[in-house]
Computed example of a mutant assay.
Amino acid sequence: MKELKGYRFRIYPDEIQRKFFIETFGCVRFTYNQLLMRRQEPGMEKATPAQLKQEHPFLKETDSLALANAQRNLERAFRNYYNGRAGYPKLKSKKNSWQSYTTNNQKGTVQLADNYLKLPKLKELVVVDQHREVKGEIKSATISAKHSQEFYVSLLCLEEIPPLKKTGEVVKLTFNPHELISMNQKLVLPDFCQKKIDQKIVQAERKLACRKKAARIKKVHLKDAKNYQKQKRVVEQLHTTKANQTKNYLEQVSFLLVKNFDKIKIQNKYLNKEKENRTTTFQLKDWNQFLTKIKYKTQWYDKELI
C-alpha cells in the first residue's frame, strides 16, 4: 500500500543559497504574521498572499508556494484552535532558534539525485548529505535552519510500503521508565545507554551557570555575553544529541516489535509523577512518541494494534 513517508537530511548551501533561505524564512514569517494580524482586526476581510505581494513587492522575489503554505499553516492553526486542540495562533518571531518554510513539488520542481537537491527559485543545486535512499514520489520539501547555521531538508514522499511477513505472535506492552517497555514475550532489544551524554550535559550546564554568574558580576547583559552565548549553544547541541539518540532508539524498538509480532496489545498506564524524575531513562514524552511510531508502523506493515 502507498503511504506518506518522511526523510530528513542535512544540507550544505553556499552563501547565495544560504541568503535565499534566510530571506525566504523572513518572507514566510512576514506573510503569516500579516495574515494573522488582519484577521484580528474587526471588520477586516481575510487577506491572501497575492494581495500582500501587491502591497509588498519584495514578496515576489521568494517562492510563491512557500507563501501559500504559510497561509495554509495559519488556516490549520485556526482549525486546531476552534476544535480545542490548540491555543489561539501566535505571531511568529525571528528570534526563534528554528526557522523553516515548505514548498511543493510541481512537475519536478523538487528533485533529489546524487547528493544534490533541486528547489524552486534556486538556479544552483544544493549539496545534501543523503545517508539513505529516497523511494517514491516527492510531494513536498521543508527547509529548516537552526540559528541560521545548520540547514536541513525534510522530504515528504508517497511510496509503496510492502507488508512484513506474518509471524502469528502476540505481545502485550506497558510503559517502563527505565527500559521504555515491559513485555510478556522475550525479544532482544538494542543497547541503550545515555550516561555519557547525561554527564556531558551536567558538566556543560554547570559551566553555563558559572558564565552566567560571571556576566552578572561584570554587569553584562546575557545576550551580549559572548562566552555565555557560546556555552549556551553547546548545551543546546548536547540536548539535541540526546533527543536524537532517544528518537533513534524508539525507531529501532518500534520496528522490531512490528517485525516480530502480528498483534501488539498496549496497556497505556499513566506513570506516577512522583516516580518520573531525571534519574529515569525514559519520560512520558518518550512513551507518547513511541506510541505514535507504533501506530503508523502497524498501519504501514499490515499489523494489528490494540
Rank of each mutant, 00 (worst) to 15 (best):
D114N: 15
L180Q: 01
L67S: 01
L271N: 04
K139H: 02
L36C: 06
R72L: 12
M37L: 11
K196R: 13
F20Q: 06
T298H: 01
R206N: 14
K232P: 12
G87Y: 01
E124I: 04
T281F: 04
H56V: 12
V188L: 06
G136Y: 07
R278K: 15
N69F: 15
E41P: 00
L52I: 10
T167I: 03
N96A: 12
K218W: 02
A70V: 03
Q40E: 13
T24A: 02
I294Y: 03
D129L: 10
F175E: 02
E179P: 01
Y270Q: 14
Q17H: 03
T103Y: 09
K5Y: 11
R38V: 00
M1G: 07
K230D: 06
E160V: 10
T298G: 01
K275R: 14
K166Q: 09
I22Y: 03
V220Q: 04
H178S: 14
R211W: 15
L305I: 09
L59S: 09
F290S: 05
T174E: 05
N176P: 05
Q245L: 09
K139P: 02
V258N: 01
F30W: 15
T103Q: 05
K265G: 00
G168L: 05
A145C: 04
A50H: 05
Q130G: 08
T24S: 05
N244K: 15
K218Y: 01
K223I: 11
H147N: 12
H239Y: 15
T241I: 00
T109W: 05
Y32D: 02
E304D: 08
M44F: 11
T174N: 08
F261V: 14
L222V: 09
L305H: 10
S140L: 10
G87L: 04
I143N: 03
A77R: 03
K213T: 14
S93C: 03
Q252K: 13
H131E: 09
G108N: 09
D286N: 15
V110F: 00
F261H: 07
L91S: 10
Q267L: 11
F175T: 01
C157Y: 06
Q54G: 09
Y7C: 06
Q34E: 11
L164C: 06
Q267W: 06
F9G: 08
E160H: 14
V28M: 08
K121G: 10
T292P: 00
L117E: 05
K212M: 13
K207S: 08
F25C: 07
Q51W: 07
K172D: 14
